[in-house]
Amino acid sequence: MEPELLEMLRSSLTKVLTERSSVALDVRLAELGWDDVVADDAPSALQALFEISGGTLSDADPLSPLLARSLAESLGTPELAAASLVLPSSLHPDELTSYVDGTSVVVSGVLLGPGPGPAAGSGLLVPVECGEGRIGLAHLVGATAADLGASHCAAVLEESGQHPARVEAVVAATDAVIFDGPEARAAWGTAVALGRWTSAAELIGIGTRVLATAVAYAGERKQYGRAIGSFQALQHRIASAHTLIVGARHIVDEAARRRDPWVALVAKAAAGRAAELTCTQAQQTYGAIGFTWEHEFHRYLRRSYLVDRRLGDWRTLEFEIGSRIQATGRAPRIGVL
């Protein structure tokens, strides 16, 4: 995408993602001609969408519709595209917390932003363990989040602009369409990779914003007769955070271009760590003011925790990366000249 075009896109996205509206995000994006933009340059478009979503604490939820659509495409079942996705609440997305048990589907997981979301009545889509570690997908055709007693997670999380809800329910298997062949596992793998890459972009958005605000604050706040940003101690903290963000961002860019699960995994690990360490350094920069409810910082901190947790937090992912390198003896080179 041309830089000017991308700039225009970013400003329209910022508007869409921050405006208060009862219209579903999908619909508002459609008005932007989103499908054409994505068809034209999906990597840049999606990356911008998620980065801005994180950087503005948008309370829309672009992720579950994106993943539902990806699952629908992979499984060749268009009606899945409008279902709401229940993500596992485990540290790792391959350890599913929902499962199929004989005649029932035991659902345990997290619904992202049930706010103005996908068309009601399209059911819930749940990755499920189908015995012997097999990964499948259950489409609870007629169910809604409310039916299943979804309860919002602690209100403090909503300060982050996210409205995750816990779902704990048992549904009769007869009320579900279950995909449990190898194609379901592959579809979930594709969705996880997509979710990791876009979540990594969101983390970069959060980190970039937090860093910029900290730099600005350090330039204004004076102590000992000088701007605190002139002290080495703060400069070095901020420079090291910036370095991590820039480094992670390069991997996220590559993940966007490559759509490779391994690259997405590495991108999410790097971005999660960069966002967390950036928040740590920024908080130190703010001093006591950053510890107040009024200051925006804590919202970003909460958001970074939530997004990091999604589809594998950075510590878990670092372990997974390392384990795979140990198992194969290979450290694949990501990116060609």
Partner: peptide, 22 residues
Amino acid sequence: PSPAAAAELGRAYALTTALRLR
């Protein structure tokens, strides 16, 4: 290979990848 060293290895690899792409 020990699980105790896996996470550190994963981090080293991620940082090396960042360096490569940068």
